[in-house]
Structure formats: structure tokens, C-alpha cells
Design a protein around this nucleic acid. Structure first.
Length: 830
RNA sequence: GCCGGGGUGGUGAAAUCGGUAAACACAGGGGACUUAAAAUCCCCCGCCCGCAGGGCUUCUGGGUUCGAGUCCCAGCCCCGGCACCA
């Protein structure tokens, strides 16, 4: 006998015990096989079409790297899968697809590095990912998977390009772009992190190349406005709002002056958020790329001006965009008039002014802008105070830019007015006098989708000498990416496809003349910008998405993914959805009703990533403990939306929990439940039912552990009625184990087909007695156990008669007694 | 600099509305059962003084309150994102 009075596992019964013991690998293999045979997780087209109460559970599809999934990836998918399985147990028809985001520079670079071809590399990576994803027991609909590199998928990616092209939302223009000299490609602004390449960390340079852009800026206001109504993680919405970067201010016109101080007729346009400080604008700065540089530059100063511009153009964006470097610049010798003061002010050129934002020119107000102040100090330009703080007057000298509140000074008719209030007044005044108007500006730039690389969908355009760029007709899609052995990019900045003459030589679809295909491929964010619309419709190869299916399944009910895509992917997919709606292809404009960002798995103090060298491979862990234990452990680590520290030893907790659950269930008998145990079970149902949909997985698991401890307390044997609800509740976390136990409990259908989420009975969950804390002056002096709903008087007198309480009350004057029913009694004494 | 999220035992973490801080686990210690180990079970486990009991404790300092991890003010530190954006 062991300490609980149960027969010990002695050698003679070992063989039999072993047969009934929990062997995760067997259970998991069995149920994965059965799910597949029964089609438990997959839908037919008809099932999708007729689904009742559909729930679209989406997770961010992975990029199939050669290394395989790491623990961080598994964490993301498991958390989303738990959510989907829970919804299914609540009776929803849950569609949970998965796919592969397999195009892109990452794969291409890896293929180059190991000397293979992406077309060979990707299928083997996909096979490995598929194996791993099956192994963790996700409820994935493998019949509706997508692979962005499959022509049957990118045919429709190209179709989407053509929709934008035809609608005038795709535009080819020569533009300064971020050029990564290591990856030898153009990067979107969003892929430049702190001035360096997102992938390889190499400082990015500027180049001017003709590129395709999607005009996402036309949608900036709508993308911003809609954020308001989305049920998304707050941090994600804030990040998007920041990225869109709306600001309000004014556009002001500064007349250029000739050598005699007369207006030339040209004006320099500036954008400012602080038109109220216009009286303090003591000089003007143009960005080096500004079109008026030539016109305003004095003949005598052309040499230094051009030298400065050349240097700026060569400088990479890191050096250029470092805020903390010393300001550089050069005077043009030209002047313009400050329209507020009427004074003539010098025009300078400096690279701290960016051509990409606003008008590419600023009015410099050194008194009240830190950057202008620094520049003015550097070049000895006049600094005028136009805002006085509470302790200042008009003459108080400035030793740094003053950006605080105050009233205007040295500002003509506006002297004495509050700065903030005068923004509007000054703008109105400027408008009345014809030198300005209110203006809204966005930081968001148009989306550059061109990539001078090989591993992506060819942009479906033909360049014709007569007709210009012409879209490839829809019935000629897809434009197949040819297999090219030499796909290494070179310094030319031209796509490798431009070396494949037999591929790019074609005829113009419009006039039939000799023409040339576009040799750039598109950005992977275009592939991933619409995959969720494709999933339900993968049974159709004659349309990108079926209207009826889309109507039934979209928008996505819940999208769970990493916050690293808070800005790019989520913004682009919102944009594409809006465009498709405007073009009449969709009847909704926001793709994801609910978005939740999961946290990060931290190993050795930082996020798990290959570059940090702290990647943990899941396969051996699953081998040793089983997928169910691993899933449960990951979800138990910490709050799902905050992530957690990965500590290998911690897996022992969930491992023991699942084993004890198994033992309890297989030895459970019939009979009526113990009332105390039943109460705990109902309390647990209530708790878990609240916590799972709120992604409080860690506390839901803790509640179940606690419940099992009560069920087994003192070594008692459980009865089935006590333990069945626990089997269902644990099933989103440990689906294989739950299926097996469910079957052993004698149920015919599987948990995910037959079982329904348990209901809790408020009456059965109610406690009859409560513990009341007794405090004297807020300090705990005793705890009393008393029947629930006892009258206040009785509670207080019971509290007062506690020995330890009485001692603290003795000889003191009672001022007040605070009674919080069911919680505490606090005696406030002298 | 700006915008988010944080700071609680040796560790991961709990704590509805302001109401018994540390649930649930890991690690550690002790014990039972074992020839032994594994497994299992029981007990202890924030710090200090201890017989009872008491004092202290949720980054720091103030405040509000009968009562603050939770609310308010000021500051420090960590993580993530953005950043010469006018």
C-alpha cells in the first residue's frame, strides 16, 4: 500500500498497470490518425458552404524556414488552437486553416547560402513544417491550406495587383528608395529598422529606381478612423495610429525674393504643426532634394551647394537620419519673406529636412523647435522668442528651444494670446491674407511593392513602347515564375528575371507589338495581405474567392498573432480589404473583427530567435513528454498576451497534472459526487469558462489543477460525474489525452464531435460558509469561518469575541466598524 | 524624445469593484513506502524575532482611504515599438 492506502505498483501487477498507464506517444499517434480518418478537423466544400454558426479562427501563417518551427512558433499556434477548440466545444463550426508564406528574400537568401534552389528548398521545408504542425495536434483544416508560392495561389495575388492597377491605385514612379547593398534589393520604408536592413542589419542607402507603388496614402484617413471601432489589442491599434501618423497644422507660402528684395513670384511651401510660431521663423530650410534648390541658389554659392547635395545623396539613410548627429547645412544665398513679419529671411539647405514628409521644406523657428535651435546655434542664425512661459517675458533669453505652454510675444497682433489657442487664429489670419491654409498631413507613405529579386510572384505587367505599362489580361494569369538557376541578384539593381530573355520577351496584349515583361517581383506582404480571404475558397481554381463562401465566413472572427506584424501586415491587409470592397468584390472593409497579440517566449533573457542563438527546438521535448504536456506547459507559462519565460524544468508541473488526471479517470467509479467536490468542480467550470475566451490560459490551467487536487484529496477515488467536466475542459490544451479519456469513459463520439462544454450551476458552485478576515485598524488579527449571509450583527459579534481580536480591542475606544459582507470586518479604534 | 507594456518570494506567476498579498506550479528541504532508484503520497517553504504571538514586505518617495499590489502625484528601472516627421 502507498501512503494513500492504494495498492502499490509492485512488480507482479506492473504488467497490467503498464497497459493502463498513460503513454503519450501512443495516445497521440492514435488520435491524430483517427482525426484524419474521420475528417474531424477538415471540411468539404459543401460543409463550408452550409456551415451553421461559423467561426473563422485565424492565426498568422508561418514562413517555412529550413530550421523548422521553434518553441516560439508552437506557442503562437497552440494559443490560437486552444481558442479554436474552445469555440468548437461551445458549438460553433470552427474553420481553422493554416498555410505557408513561402515567398520572399529570407528563403531566397537561405537558398543562396546553402547553394540550393528555392523551388527545391521550399517543398522540403513545407513538408517538415507540416509534420511538425501535425505533431502538435492543431485542429488545422489541411484540405484548405495555401502555399503562396503555388501558381494556383499567386495567380490570384497577381489578379489583386491588376485590380489595383486597373483602379489607378498602382502607380509606377521613380522614387528614392531604400537600397540594401547586402541583400541588393529595395526595401519598403517599413522594412528599414533604424536606418538598417530589417533582415541583415546592413546600413541602407538611397537610390532612385522606377518602382510600383500602391497608393495606400489615399486610404490613410479611413485606415485611421476605422481603428476606433475594432476589437483589437490596444497596443496594436496605437501602433497603427502612430504609423499612419496624422497631424494637423497649416501649409504656409513664403515668397522668394530676388537680389533687390522684390518677390520673384515663386513661393516656398512649408508644412507646420505650429503656425502659431510663424513670427519666430528666422530662416528657411529646404531638403537637399527640393526642386527649388536650383532656383534659389546664388550663382556664387553653387559649388558648395552642389557639393553638399551630392554628399547628402550618397550618404546612406542611417547617417542621414541620425537625430543625434551634429546638424549640417549650407546657405543658398537666397532669401524669402516671412509673410507674418514681412522680414527677409535666408534660405538654407540641410539634410535634417526630409523630402518625403510634408513639403520638403520647413520654416525654421529656432526659439521653439529643438532641431532648429541646434541648427541656428551651429550656424549663428538669429533666435527669436515668440512664446513666453509663465516666468518669462518677451525679452527672456533662450538657452534651449522652449516648447512648453505660454502666451505669444513678439508676434504683432497676437501678442498675449495663448499659444495653443492661437494655432487656429494664426491660420485663419494667414488664410485671410492669402499666405496659408489649414492642412492635414500623414506620415504614412505609399506602399512600394516592387522587389528586384527572384523569389516572388512576377508583377503581371507588360511594358510596351507604344502603350506603356499594360496589365496582363486575366485569362493569361498566372504569369509563371520561371525556374532560373542563376537567381543571384547583382549590383545592377535589376531583377534576375531581366537576364532571362526568353521569359521577358513577349508581345503587348493591347497592340501586339514587341514588348517586355516587368521583371520585378512583388513584395511578400502582398502575398500575405489576402491569404485569409483565399482559405475558404481553395476548392475553387476559377476565382480568387467565392462570393457565397466569403459571405459566410468572413470577416475573420478571431485573429491571433505576433505584435511584430502590428503595423505592416495588419495595415496592408486592411488596406487591400478596403480596396476590394470599394471595387465591389467584398461586402466588408475590415478583415478581422477581433485581433489579439500573443506575448513572446523569452529564453535566456531575450526573445527566441536564431540571431540570438537561443532557439529551442520542440521535437525532442514532444518526444519526451508528448504534445499534450508541451501544449499545456506552454499555455501555463504566463498570461498568453504577455508571454513568459521558458524554463525547461517547469514542464514537470503539467506533466504530472496530466498523468494524475489520467490515473484518476481510468480508476474512476460510478456513484454520486461528493458535494464538496461537486462544488469545486462547478466553481472550476465557472472560472475556466470565463478565462479561456479571455486568453487567461495560465489561470484556467491552474484552476483545473486545483480542482483535480480537490478531487483526489486524501487519496480518494473519483466518480465519473466529478471528473467528466474536467476532461472536456482540459481538451483544448490536451486534445489527444482528452479524446482517449473520453472514449474510456464510455462515450461513442469524440470530444470534439460529441461533447459540449459543461454548464456550471450557480447553486452548486455556491459556498455555504465563508471565511471572514477580522482586522483591527486594518491589521489582520483573526480569520473566522461563518455561514454565508449571516446577519451583520452576528458577524461582528463573532469577530469581536475572537480572543486575539478582543485583546487588541481591550481598553480602546471603538470609533467605527466596517463590515464588507463575505469579506471582512474591520474595527477602527482610537 | 514620443507611444505602448511592465517592476510582487529562490524561479514562472496569482490576486473580480480598493477588502486575508503570494493561488497554481517549478526548484529546494524534511518524511512515508522501497535492498536501492524511479514513480507515488504527506509535511515545510517571503523576511526578522519567536512559546503564544508580534514586526516588516508588492521598484522608490509622497498622497487619498477604516483599509492601497490595485486609485492619485512625483521619480527610478526594465521590455517592445516609433523616431531629425517640422
Amino acid at each position: 500500500m502507498d501512503a494513500r492506502g492504494r495498492p502499490r505498483r509492485t512488480t507482479p501487477v506492473m504488467a497490467q498497470e503498464e497497459k493502463d498507464g498513460y503513454v503519450p506517444s501512443e495516445v497521440e499517434a492514435k488520435w491524430q490518425r483517427l482525426w484524419e480518418e474521420r475528417g474531424t478537423n477538415t471540411f468539404t466544400r459543401e460543409e463550408l458552404e452550409n456551415a451553421e454558426d461559423p467561426f473563422y479562427n485565424l492565426m498568422m501563417f508561418p514562413y517555412p524556414s529550413a530550421e523548422g518551427l521553434h518553441v516560439g512558433n508552437i506557442y503562437a499556434f497552440t494559443g490560437a488552437d486552444v481558442h479554436g477548440r474552445y469555440q468548437r466545444l461551445r458549438g460553433r463550426t470552427v474553420f481553422e486553416p493554416i498555410g505557408f508564406d513561402a515567398f520572399g528574400i529570407h528563403s531566397e537568401n537561405f537558398a543562396l547560402k546553402i547553394g540550393t534552389h528555392p523551388m527545391d528548398l521550399i517543398p522540403s521545408n513545407v513538408r517538415n513544417f507540416t509534420r511538425q504542425l501535425r505533431r502538435i495536434g492543431g485542429m488545422f483544416d489541411w484540405k484548405h491550406s495555401v502555399d503562396t508560392t503555388d501558381p494556383s495561389y499567386y495567380k490570384w495575388t497577381q489578379w489583386i495587383f491588376l485590380q489595383l492597377f486597373d483602379a489607378g491605385l498602382a502607380e509606377r514612379k521613380e522614387a528614392p528608395v531604400n537600397w540594401c547593398p547586402s541583400c541588393m534589393t529595395v526595401l519598403a520604408n517599413e522594412q528599414v529598422i533604424g536606418g538598417a536592413c530589417e533582415r541583415c542589419g546592413t546600413p541602407v542607402e538611397q537610390r532612385r529606381i522606377a518602382q510600383w507603388f500602391f497608393k495606400i496614402t489615399q486610404y490613410a484617413q479611413r485606415l485611421l478612423d476605422n481603428l476606433e471601432g475594432l476589437d483589437w489589442s490596444d497596443s496594436t491599434r496605437k501602433a497603427q495610429a502612430n504609423w499612419i501618423g496624422r497631424s494637423t497644422g497649416a501649409q504656409l507660402h513664403f515668397p522668394v525674393l530676388d537680389g533687390d528684395g522684390a518677390e520673384t513670384g515663386t513661393t516656398i511651401e512649408v508644412y507646420t504643426t505650429r503656425p502659431d510660431t510663424v513670427f519666430g521663423a528666422t530662416y528657411m530650410v529646404l531638403s537637399p532634394e527640393h526642386p527649388l534648390v536650383e532656383e534659389v541658389t546664388d550663382d556664387g554659392l553653387r559649388a558648395p551647394v552642389y557639393a553638399y547635395i551630392d554628399a547628402a545623396a550618397k550618404k546612406d539613410l542611417v547617417a542621414r537620419q541620425k537625430a543625434d548627429k551634429t546638424k549640417t547645412g549650407v546657405p543658398t544665398g537666397g532669401y524669402c519673406r516671412n509673410p507674418a513679419t514681412g522680414e527677409s529671411i535666408p534660405i538654407w539647405i540641410a539634410d535634417y529636412v526630409l523630402m518625403e514628409y510634408g513639403t520638403g521644406a520647413i520654416m525654421a523657428v529656432p526659439g521653439h523647435d529643438a532641431r532648429d535651435f541646434e541648427f541656428a546655434r551651429e550656424f549663428d542664425l538669429p533666435i527669436v522668442r515668440v512664446v513666453a512661459g509663465p516666468d518669462d517675458d518677451a525679452g527672456t533669453p533662450l538657452d534651449e528651444a522652449y516648447v512648453g505652454p505660454g502666451r505669444l510675444v513678439n508676434s504683432g497682433p497676437f501678442d498675449g494670446t495663448d499659444v495653443h489657442e492661437s494655432v487656429e487664429a494664426v491660420t485663419t489670419w494667414a488664410a485671410e491674407n492669402g499666405w496659408g491654409e489649414p492642412k492635414v498631413n500623414f506620415r504614412l507613405h505609399d506602399w512600394c511593392i516592387s522587389r528586384q529579386r527572384y523569389w516572388g510572384p512576377p508583377i503581371p505587367v507588360v511594358h510596351c513602347g507604344e502603350c506603356g505599362p499594360v496589365g496582363v489580361p486575366e485569362d493569361e494569369l498566372p504569369v509563371i515564375l520561371p525556374r532560373v538557376e542563376d537567381f543571384k541578384p547583382d549590383e545592377s539593381g535589376i531583377s534576375p528575371l531581366a537576364r532571362v530573355e526568353e521569359w521577358y520577351r513577349t508581345t503587348c496584349p493591347q497592340c501586339g507589338a514587341d514588348a517586355r515583361r516587368e521583371t520585378d517581383v512583388s513584395d511578400t506582404f502582398l502575398d500575405s495581405g489576402w491569404y485569409f480571404i483565399r482559405y475558404p475558397s481553395t476548392d475553387f481554381d476559377d476565382r480568387p474567392f467565392d462570393a457565397a463562401l466569403t459571405q459566410r465566413w468572413l470577416p475573420v472572427d478571431t485573429y491571433i498573432g505576433g505584435n511584430e506584424h502590428a503595423v505592416l501586415h495588419l495595415l496592408y491587409s486592411r488596406f487591400l480589404t478596403m480596396v476590394l470592397k470599394d471595387l465591389g468584390h467584398l461586402d466588408f472593409e475590415e478583415p478581422y473583427d477581433v485581433f489579439r497579440a500573443h506575448g513572446l517566449i523569452i529564453a535566456d533573457g531575450s526573445k527566441m530567435s536564431k540571431s540570438k542563438g537561443n532557439v529551442i527546438v520542440p521535437d525532442p521535448i514532444i518526444e519526451e513528454f508528448g504534445a499534450d504536456t508541451f501544449r499545456t506547459y506552454l499555455m501555463f507559462l504566463g498570461p498568453y498576451e504577455e508571454g513568459g519565460d521558458y524554463r525547461p524544468q517547469g514542464i514537470q508541473g503539467p506533466f504530472g497534472f496530466l498523468h494524475r488526471l489520467w490515473d484518476t479517470v481510468v480508476s474512476a467509479g460510478d456513484g454520486s459526487p461528493d458535494p464538496d467536490v461537486e462544488r469545486k468542480v462547478h466553481q472550476t467550470i465557472r472560472q475556466v469558462t470565463e478565462q479561456i475566451p479571455a486568453l487567461g490560459y495560465n489561470t484556467a490551467i491552474a484552476a483545473m489543477m486545483e480542482c483535480l487536487n480537490v478531487v483526489r484529496a486524501g487519496g480518494r477515488d473519483a466518480v465519473r460525474a466529478e471528473i467528466e467536466p474536467l476532461v472536456i475542459m482540459v481538451s483544448p490544451f490536451a486534445p489527444h489525452l482528452a479524446e482517449e479519456l473520453w472514449q474510456r469513459l464510455g462515450h461513442g463520439g469524440g470530444v470534439f464531435d460529441g461533447a459540449r462544454w459543461p454548464d456550471f450551476d450557480e447553486k452548486k458552485a455556491a459556498e455555504e460558509v465563508v471565511q471572514i478576515a477580522v482586522q483591527v485598524n486594518g491589521k489582520l488579527r483573526a480569520t473566522i469561518t461563518i455561514e454565508k449571509d449571516t446577519a451583520e450583527q452576528e458577524v461582528v459579534s463573532a469577530a469581536r469575541s475572537e480572543e486575539n481580536v478582543a485583546r487588541h480591542l481591550e481598553g480602546k475606544e471603538e470609533r467605527r466598524v466596517v463590515h464588507v459582507p463575505g469579506r471582512l470586518v474591520n474595527f477602527v479604534v482610537e
